[in-house]
Amino acid sequence: MLSSAGTKVRVLVALLLAAVLLLAACSSGESSSGAAARDLCSPPGPGSATAAPTNVEVGSETTVDRYTTDSVIPLDQIDTSRLNLITPGVLTVGTLTDAPPSICINSENQFSGYDNELLKAIAAKLGLQINFVGTEFTGLLAQVAAHRFDVGSASIGTTDERRDIVGFTNSYDFGYNSLVAPTDGPIQGFDDLNSSTRIGVVQGTQQDDYVRNTLGLDPVEFPDYATLYANLLSGQIDVWVAGSPQAEGIVEPGDPMSVVQNSFIPDNVAAWAVAKENQPLIDALNSGLDAIIADGTWARLYSDWEPRPLPESWKPGSKAAPTPDLPDFAALAALNPQNTTEIPAAQPKSTLQQLKDTFFNWDLYVRAFPDLLK
């Protein structure tokens, strides 16, 4: 139960948030020169390439490929009238709003992000329209299984437990589990975590499962990424176990937080979720994925949205899909000043400064606003 003082703080924060949002709504439409004017859901481009992480947990790159299909049905043999879609001719997709660069809403109020742009390209190959619907990750797989959505698009890690609920396409992305912690804090790796560490995760994600079942620890669950990161910045939790795309998209240069270690595990490849019994739709999406790999669309979108080297043990699509022709991201990363400039160590902040940085950080409100409307 919350104490009286804790309740008052929460009420004050809620009032401050309401005031900030009201002022924004009543403004004349002028954009500031700060984060409010920056599109948080836009492709950073190949110029923002990063090298493969050097702080990967030892022994974590071993993988066994059990589910990737050997080949796909040729695209011209896909009968889109037999895909069991909720609305014929329309792919209804459940997705998220606040996890750039993978899944997010851009400055034009359109669902975008790397995962969804890939899906738009596949829908075009299949001659389907696409309709995105925002939801929370916690209930997404159940909604796909119950045919509320044809597809779930949210950088979904293909764990065996999830395969008991839904079916999956071939993978289109990989990821590391990233440990985000104070840059110069005492926690610098997964081995530093213990039962007294307040570990933040987004509820129902692969990272939630990883902390519980691989690390054997009890995390603090949050409904969305913006709320979680705000609590990390304010010191309410000690660390965040994140998917690497989300960590890279939310943690910015100059923040007092950084990715202190990564872990690559077989379950952390991303695929689209489909109802288990709807094999025709899974086959169609697999065919579309191989088609956009073959024509270079996958490589272009990947280079724009997530420019980083592929692990040696992984490539997108079926086993028959060609290996994507990608730029030398390591060389591009070496030319990127952001990757070579040393960021000064963050100085300890007072409680008032932490509150200012967290609750008056317009960037966080922009990320959280679609969920607040719910």
Rank of each mutant, 00 (worst) to 15 (best):
T158R: 09
G189D: 12
G139Y: 13
S195P: 02
T197V: 12
Y225L: 10
F190H: 00
I165M: 09
A145W: 09
Q143W: 10
G167C: 06
P186N: 13
L119P: 03
E161H: 10
D224Y: 06
L179R: 07
T169K: 05
G127N: 12
V144P: 02
N194V: 09
V144M: 07
N177C: 13
S196N: 08
V151H: 01
L179S: 01
H147T: 10
V201D: 01
S195C: 02
H147G: 05
S196E: 11
R198G: 00
A124Y: 11
Q143G: 02
L217T: 01
T205N: 00
V133Y: 04
F174Q: 09
S195D: 15
S153G: 09
T135Y: 05
N177Y: 15
E117H: 10
V202M: 04
A154Q: 08
A146V: 00
R198H: 02
S171W: 04
A226L: 12
S195I: 07
Q207Y: 04
V220D: 04
V180Q: 06
S196G: 05
T158Y: 08
Y210W: 13
R212Q: 14
R198D: 09
P182M: 08
V180S: 01
Y225A: 11
Q206P: 00
T159I: 03
Q143E: 15
L140C: 02
E136A: 12
T227G: 11
T227W: 06
R212I: 04
Q129C: 00
G216S: 03
I165N: 06
G200H: 01
T197F: 03
N194C: 00
Q188C: 05
L128F: 03
G204D: 04
R162Y: 09
F132P: 01
L228M: 07
K125P: 10
Q143H: 13
G175H: 10
T183F: 07
P186S: 14
T158S: 14
D208K: 03
D191G: 11
V144L: 00
I122M: 15
I199P: 06
K120F: 12
Y176C: 07
P219I: 04
V201S: 04
I130W: 10
L118W: 11
V180K: 04
A123F: 05
S178L: 03
Y176T: 08
Q207C: 09
E161T: 08
V144F: 01
T135A: 01
P219V: 06
S178W: 06
G216Q: 00
G216V: 06
F174V: 08
D192Q: 01
D192R: 01
T197I: 02
I165D: 04
